[in-house]
Nucleic acid binder design. Sequence first.
DNA 1: ACTAAAATTTAACGCGCGTAAAGTTTTTAT
DNA 2: ATAAAAACTTTACGCGCGTTAAATTTTAGT
Lengths: 341, 341
Amino acid sequence: MTKIKNMEEFAALSGISRPTVSKYFHDPDSVRPTTRARIEEALERFDYRPNIYAVNQNRKLTKNIGIVVPYLADPFFAEIARYLEQSCIAAGYRPFLFSSHGEQKLENEILDGLQSLKPAGVLLAPLGRISDKSAIEKFCARVPTVLFDSNLDGLGAAFIGSDNFSFVSQTVEYMTRTGEPPSFFEMRTPANPNANKRRKAYVDVMDRLGFEPHVIKIEGTGWAFEEIGRKGALKILGERKLRTDSVLCSNDRLAIGFLAACFEEGIRVGRKDGCALRVASNDDHPFAKFTCPSLTTAAHDYDNVAARSVETLFELIENGGKFEKRTETLFPARLVLRESA
Amino acid sequence: MTKIKNMEEFAALSGISRPTVSKYFHDPDSVRPTTRARIEEALERFDYRPNIYAVNQNRKLTKNIGIVVPYLADPFFAEIARYLEQSCIAAGYRPFLFSSHGEQKLENEILDGLQSLKPAGVLLAPLGRISDKSAIEKFCARVPTVLFDSNLDGLGAAFIGSDNFSFVSQTVEYMTRTGEPPSFFEMRTPANPNANKRRKAYVDVMDRLGFEPHVIKIEGTGWAFEEIGRKGALKILGERKLRTDSVLCSNDRLAIGFLAACFEEGIRVGRKDGCALRVASNDDHPFAKFTCPSLTTAAHDYDNVAARSVETLFELIENGGKFEKRTETLFPARLVLRESA
DNA sequence: ACTAAAATTTAACGCGCGTAAAGTTTTTAT
DNA sequence: ATAAAAACTTTACGCGCGTTAAATTTTAGT
């Protein structure tokens, strides 16, 4: 089997002119059935594929989609990225996945490199607080972009995310209704803007319910949230800083660390008799089901956030890359009752 | 600030000819300091970057590196991918990350698409048992490829992975030495060839130690290992199939499910007094530290596997894409003693 | 200041493909 | 069968850049 170098050569081998072959690859139905048959016959004999990057260079509209997440080693983003990729593929697009690995510099470089790809559109979950807003703004001005997960106000043609108030109000209300009002457990300097919204929502809801909010801020930076949560929990557990038997963690990864600390200290967690503490959280991380005890949490509407993100991006693309006005779509959380609270 | 379309335009604006500008971007030191200054001055005023894909099309050797993993939503691969990406970036290469999402079809398509990228080399962790061997063989014939994690015999210029015998022998010997010999807990039809090697190693080591091997095979397909492990554990726990108080799980994700099942059933796991069961495993998954109890496991030498993989790939690239003969490098495991066994 | 070496410019081609225009062949319709 | 429509071929240019060869300018060395 000869190796075909380019379309020219393949066209010659198949006995069809190059422009027609080019047309065929754009849309097989756009050529006569007889010529289509001849091309596909040759295709079986020589296995040739057009160079997608050369194609992209010349097409005004490509089928490339950029997906950028802040930290792919976080299973939450890995899971969402998986869904986004598969949706893009199903829609006939070609996804390119990038992780900023928690670094502003890398986020900027990814966006720079993405421009060369001439993507039809980009799904961007920005780093958040440490993002270079002006760089992202410039990027969005050139490439149709939908933001998801972390909102950066005014940036991108649309934002799709989860309603943090919905998360926290459900968890706080549930814990209060079935026991004592929770303290709120979070990192002192969270990287993600959602964390701030969750804290505010907690304070709001506690006020409304007539309880005094109690926010516990723990030290730690980076993306090793479980370890940060564990260390923080060991500290406050040792200092007996909790005012009630209820704790609401800002997110599941902190909660995973919190539960590990409780187990180490021999503190029984759960809603059953004999448990000293109840721990709930937010996100419904892929592993939340497998903590001990399993984690009661407010679940992201993963499917809808991901589905709406790609839908919105496709609309944006069809609409020529611009929307009348920027929209923000927030999906409510779904309370998942497990054993920890 | 005007938007520059191409190098031609930028060259005109900077007052330098295009070939010289091209040279500059290839190596800034290859031009005279004065012209370099003029270019960089213009660079600040106009922010232009060469289109990387157009560059790749014309260069014989690109700086692109493809990284392909079987399932990115598995934190093990996410973590390894992160390390590989960062190593490539540090070496001045541009990594492109792809996940096969557990599907042979997707793995093949990724490899097809990768050829258009003209990568200098590819780091491939194949799906394993369900990989299309002939497709991978064809790919490796055209693109310098280093396999990692899963070995497919004879494919790729080299293989870097972990020594499964080292994993299992350490865990089995440890458990035997400090208590009873373990049963081996695994999926009936594992997707990954490492699983088979681990089972064989278990049988070998048990034989050598003079114990009768006891392999427990559980049902389940796909990549939701935790849930498969949990269901399987609930079943065998209910049927009291264990012959000793020791269990060695084939991998950590199964073990995470196993521990969750034990917790649900009120079975205390650990090496302390009062514990009914000891559970150990292999991999040192990023979350193994946070299970309850924390998981005793044989750790991959993540850093070395990843580092050696990229090193080997770079050597391969420098060597023109071919090695005298295919090498297989296996790194031993490091036993991590935690609370579960 | 003068010459050889080094760097730059100009001109042109190539990479693999999209695409448009003009001419030719095939198909469809009556 | 015949004209019109549709599809195809030929020719040629463009995309953004690498690269090479010859001509020109700049720099280094003495």
